[in-house]
Design a binder for these strands. Structure first.
Length: 928
RNA sequence: GCUCAGGUGGUGGAAUAGGUAGACACGCAGGACUUAAAAUCCUGUGGGCAGCAAUGUCCGUACGGGUUCGAUUCCCGUCCCGAGCACCA
């Protein structure tokens, strides 16, 4: 009987759906295991062969865990809010909900063909009101809480109000914006608007004015991780800096916990590094410099004295400060500009502001700046140093002002050289004639009381002195900024916030979800308001509602919790479900979320943890990043100004243009010339210069995309080879974590393997296995395989275990093995990888239940532990082979056993042994 | 510039608490079956040299050093590719 994969796969997919084979319930009698894929954004293009890579790996792991007796939660859903659907809506007028629905249906069809073991009864969609109710709910919780640094957790704002009313805010140690100190009496006298403004600076979800990434083409602000190289990640439009009032999440309050708790996670070092980098903890000191403006441009009477605060990690270098620098956006700019410098400063600010983020980057390291006219005083030396303004100082980090030490900071050095400012070396023997000496090492000189100390000693000593003088204190700064949470877009979660006399108020929980309203167009309104400004009656109890919507990461931040209890309409996740499923044991997805989703999700989880809604500190215990599958593009070479194409091997000597050709009309780099002529009208009368009667295409590795004509659709693979072959081949392609090009031509190998495996169960056309006991050779094949596959799956080394299956089947074929004892176990072992063929064979073997829950452990245990040690054996100093001996052999016995071993005897071939040496590192050297 | 990961046949890739490099697969070449094709099966396949041949022998894991009886694996330096961050004081 032929291996009819189309029939078999259809049959078993229907069987799984009918029997709800993969639906799970919390079951305290079994250990739980939660395997999660990063849910996809359902784009209009559908899935290509690269998308399912991670899903296949997680599916194999899920099925494998089921065999081992775990209760496996393996859900799937859609990250369905987002820009592409909305952009499409703007162009076509089609409602994003409609296109999204259509795309989801297409995704589901494609996913179903690959035979995944998802529990679809738990599907979530972020754009479903029943789902986003809980996104809005979480936002309201954040709105209703502040971060208390003393208890190091989120606390209710109501508690803060009580403290303010009782004792003012002087004793409150919270993560907050700039607030003035007030007493209880003052607080009690403030009006409602004033109180609201103050509380806003404490809330974890707060509204605040900051410089944001504004993307004019998309008409919205973007978070830092949504911008790459000054362009929007979605669409690639230019982004500029703009000051705007926006909703933000106080992620920075959690910076230290996000850093600390990473230690216990089983994530790759490189991913942890990326997060560490993004959080960017740096220890240093905040220090006050007195600055005097003799003749203020504002017209105020001079001299005006100010105290300027800066942040530095190099307090040891204060003796080398020769100037100060302010960010162009700094509040000190206005205060310190003198009358005679006014025009120059103004001109500089204007041109700095006009530049987009991209332009600023294009001019990397081009030094610009302007002098304010004022001077500051070096607190250690008493010297007067000029205060400058420059773009290289960022408003958003530290205090937006720095002390410049040109001798030991390369940016300050470049600036000093440009504007001829003095440079004072502070490290003994350092050469600063060409560049600064940035390393934190060496012995200090020219540094008063710090001279003679090493840098490592001097840093704390200098800070101690600063603290003693009362001009500063130790401080830790983070690079991690609060997340901008508003988007001026339509297709996202509406904020459950309305405004009463300008005071933002929460829509009460019982009125959630606050549904996205209908609008006539998806563009901003004529007066520049977000699209929700077009909605008729976008009000709550007569008061206007917030018009921006939440960003993409809002809906994806807690979806893993919702899968645990997806139909609960009284809680995001019930206590029982949370206690049973806890958190994600294995999370598989791409690295592109390292600094976005994976930070936000961890933050979101920690916040809910503080409030007692979840019991785990971290959402994702183990994380594996699958690599990208790239496209393998094919090229043809057209001789310039002709319609003649020359085969790749002969193209030297011709002046040719390289043209992408659809990979679907190329087989093993050979062009189907007839199909090519039909492909495009302009190629209808194409001529070819062939080599050996064939047209050979060139190839290259690129991103898989429509425009490169290198997209391979998994549906086509399923049609011609079957889902089991696709699954095996995707794993066989290479290590999971590695990026690699897709090349369909290798697929025959794994397909052949499945056919061989199938044939082991048949004699001619008749299915039949032998009930005879297996021999030693057959058992050895099986045991080797069990051990290898067990090891490989646990290490996510799926590619080598596919090889192991191939070797085993080749060996069994050679042994003409058709014993049930062997083959039945092979079926179980293979079922996570190739579930359809395994189900079919399992049922042919007479089983009535699905192979999904067959018992695997009893087969494994016996063979995974081996009580042996390998001894490398060398002859006359040259390593030859290893012999395997029992573990607990006494030292003297080892030599005897080695000499008695069949491999040794064979190698020596009767030669007389003169000496056997056992070297301490377990080498056995035989001299003859 | 900083951080991380990597460089092995024609191709994808095996093998690292240091131990016979190139498993497995693709491709290619030859053969069997077939009127023919598909499918299937068998043989060969890193390079050089010697040999009719079995085989022998030398060179080979980006490059140059080092440690070691022994290095693809460990250490130092150089080159190259990839990813992330990018004036973070």
């Amino acid at each position: 009987m032929e291996y009819d994969f189309l029939d078999i796969e259809k049959k078993w997919q229907a069987y799984w759906a009918e029997n709800k084979t993969f639906e799970v319930k919390a079951d305290p009698s079994k250990p739980k295991y939660y395997v999660l894929d990063m849910f996809p954004y359902p784009s209009g293009a559908g899935l290509h062969v690269g998308h399912p890579l991670g899903y296949i790996a997680s599916d194999i792991y899920s099925r494998y865990k089921r065999l081992k007796g775990f209760n496996v939660l393996h859900p799937m859903g859609y990250d369905a809010f987002g820009l592409p659907a909305e952009q499409y809506a703007i162009q076509t007028g089609m409602h994003p909900a409609e296109t999204t629905e259509k795309n989801i249906r297409r995704y589901r069809e494609q996913l179903d063909r690959i035979g995944f073991s998802y529990d679809w009864s738990r599907e979530v969609r972020t754009c479903d009101p029943a789902y986003y109710k809980w996104t809005q709910w979480a936002f309201l919780q954040m709105f209703g809480h502040y971060y208390d640094k003393d208890t190091d957790k989120a606390q209710p704002v109501s508690q803060l109000e009580e403290i303010f009313a009782r004792e003012g805010n002087a004793g409150v140690n919270a993560a907050c914006g700039d607030v003035e100190i007030f007493t209880a009496e003052q607080w009690n006298a403030f009006d409602e608007k004033r109180r609201s403004d103050i509380l806003m600076k404490y809330r974890i979800a707060y509204q605040g004015e900051t410089a944001v990434n504004w993307c004019p083409a998309l008409g919205t602000v973007l978070a830092n991780d949504e911008v790459k190289e000054g362009l929007s990640v979605r669409g690639g439009y230019p982004v500029e800096q703009k000051k705007m009032k926006q909703w933000q999440l106080r992620v920075s309050a959690y910076a230290d916990r996000l850093l600390r708790d990473m230690e216990e996670l089983e994530w790759t070092d490189s991913l942890k590094d990326m997060q560490r980098n993004w959080i960017g903890k740096s220890q240093g000191a905040e220090m006050i410099f007195k600055a005097v403006n003799e003749n203020p441009a504002s017209g105020a009477p001079g001299p005006q004295e100010y105290e300027m605060t800066i942040f530095t990690t190099r307090a040891d270098t204060v003796f080398g400060v020769t100037f100060m620098v302010l960010a162009p956006e700094s509040e000190w700019v206005e205060k310190l500009t003198t009358r005679d410098r006014k025009e120059d400063v103004k001109a500089y600010l204007v041109q700095a502001k006009r530049k987009t983020e991209r332009e600023r980057m294009a001019e990397t390291r081009k030094v610009t700046g302007v002098f304010t006219g004022s001077y500051a005083v070096n607190p250690f030396t008493g010297d007067k140093v000029p205060v400058w303004i420059s773009e290289y100082v960022l408003a958003g980090y530290g205090t937006g002002a720095i002390m410049a030490v040109p001798a030991h900071d390369s940016r300050d050095y470049a600036f000093a050289k440009q504007f001829n400012l003095p440079i004072i070396p502070l490290i003994e023997g350092c050469d600063i004639s060409r560049e600064s000496f940035d390393a934190k090492e060496g012995i200090l000189c020219n540094s008063g009381f710090l001279s003679g100390k090493t840098v490592q000693e001097a840093i704390p000593a200098a800070i101690d002195e600063v603290e003693r003088l009362g001009i500063g204190k130790r401080r830790i700064n983070y690079r991690l900024r609060d997340a901008i949470f508003s988007r001026q877009r339509y297709w996202g979660e509406p904020f459950p916030i309305y405004y009463k006399d300008g005071v933002p108020l929460p829509v009460p929980e019982e009125d959630l979800p606050l549904r996205l309203p209908e609008v006539d167009k998806f563009l901003p309104t004529e007066d520049g308001e977000p699209p929700l400004g077009r909605a008729a009656n976008w009000t709550y109890k007569g008061y206007p509602l917030e018009k921006s919507t939440m960003p993409g990461f809002a809906g994806s931040s807690a979806y893993y919790l919702r899968y645990m209890d997806p139909h609960n309409d009284t809680a995001l996740v019930s206590r029982e479900a949370d206690l049973y499923w806890k958190n994600v044991d294995l999370y598989i997805g791409g690295t592109e979320h390292a600094t976005g989703h994976l930070i936000y999700s961890r933050f979101w989880n920690k916040f809910l943890y503080d409030l007692g809604y979840v019991t785990e500190k971290e959402p994702f215990k183990k994380l594996v990043n699958q690599g990208m599958i790239q496209g393998r593009s094919n090229f043809v070479y057209r001789i310039k100004n002709t319609n003649t194409f020359v085969s790749c091997g002969l193209k030297e000597g011709y002046d040719t243009t390289e043209i992408h050709v659809d990979v679907n009309i190329v087989y093993n780099d050979r062009l189907d010339v007839e199909a090519f002529r039909k492909w495009r009208p302009e190629f209808a009368d194409a001529e070819f210069i062939l080599e050996n009667g064939e047209y050979i295409c060139g190839y290259g590795v690129e991103k898989m995309s429509k425009s490169m004509f290198n997209v391979v659709n998994p549906d086509n693979i399923c049609n011609s080879y079957g889902a089991d072959t696709l699954r095996l081949y995707e794993m066989f392609l290479g290590p999971l974590e590695q990026s690699k090009p897709w090349d369909t031509k290798g697929i025959d190998g794994v397909h052949r393997f499945l056919k061989k495996f199938w044939r082991l169960f048949f004699t001619g056309d008749v299915f039949g296995v032998s009930e005879e006991k297996a021999g030693a050779a057959e058992l050895k094949v099986l045991h080797k395989l069990i051990r290898k596959v067990d090891e490989d799956v646990e290490n996510f080394s799926f590619n080598t275990s596919v090889s192991a299956f191939m070797i085993a089947v080749n060996e069994l074929q050679e042994l003409r093995c058709n014993k049930r004892e062997i083959l039945e176990k092979m079926v179980i072992l293979l079922s996570p990888y190739a579930p359809h063929i395994s189900e079919e064979l399992w049922s042919l073997l007479g089983h009535r239940e699905s192979v999904t829950y067959a018992s695997f452990p009893e087969y494994v245990e016996a063979y995974t532990i081996e009580n042996t040690v390998e001894y490398p054996v060398s002859f006359n100093g040259k390593m030859r082979f290893k012999v395997t001996l029992p573990k607990d052999l006494p030292a003297g016995e080892v030599e005897k056993a080695v000499l008695a071993h069949e491999s040794t005897a064979k190698y020596l071939g009767g030669a007389k042994v003169r000496k056997v040496i056992v070297v301490p590192s377990k080498i056995i050297n035989i001299v003859f």
